[in-house]
Amino acid sequence: MQREEKQLETSLETLIAQVSDIKNSLVAFIHKLENEYERLTWPSVLDNFALLTGQLNTLNKVLKNEKMPLLKNQVIIPLLLSPDRDEEIMRLTEGRVPVFSHEVVPDHLRTKPDPEVEEQEKQLSSEAARITPEVAQKQVQSMNKLCNSLLEKIIKEERDSDVSSLRQNKQTYNPNDTNALVAAVAFGKGLSNRRPPGPGGPMGAGQTGASGMLPGAASMQQMSMPPNQQQHMAGVPMAQGGQPGKMPSSIKTNIKSASMHPYQR
């Protein structure tokens, strides 16, 4: 018996601590809402809600704990009613309840719903009792029908919005553009500077000409006809292409022919 009482006491203490925690955070939140609403940000409001949710969850856990005695079975009886001002009660209730009199006790120790609520509930249950089981069944069916069609509508709406958003999203990129841009950045495809001769253009063309086809042709001729005169004769029609770039090539071939000479003879 004593053990049970002790248990009740400790669990009540934890309950009171939890509830006062919740009360404090509520007070702080309300204070913020009333006084700092101008600079209150949405994330901090959400933080406050999260805090409250967490605290309510802990309270629920405490209530559902195995060690928590069945509070329903506890009875509270007002032992003393007095019309005089009670300082102790004032302190405990933070000034909300100044007296513990017959006027306020029914409100504060009430375990039933408010009279108006009780009245409404009574009306509803008497109405429910009046209808026959068949009518009730019919009403249940029509209710289910309504719910189902509503659900279908919602699902259909969701699917449609998915499809339409997909269709929209398809337009946010174009694979051809991706390829064009990647090619442009990677090796300059489609950038106008690439084809028309830029600063390096003609020089590059001249180089390939000089080191590629012309010297090869010239040295071929030289191999077959060593005399200088003939080389010149042959060189003229070749030069009909008429590049100034011919000059370095002929110098080059001359050097080559000079170095070739000893081996030929």
């Binding site: 442009a184 090796f187 300059g188 950038l191 500077n193 690439r194 830029g198 600063p199 590059g204």
Partner: peptide, 9 residues
């Protein structure tokens, strides 16, 4: 080196 192409990003 010679410049091959250029672009603005």
């Amino acid at each position: 080196f010679r410049m091959d192409h250029e672009f603005i990003a």
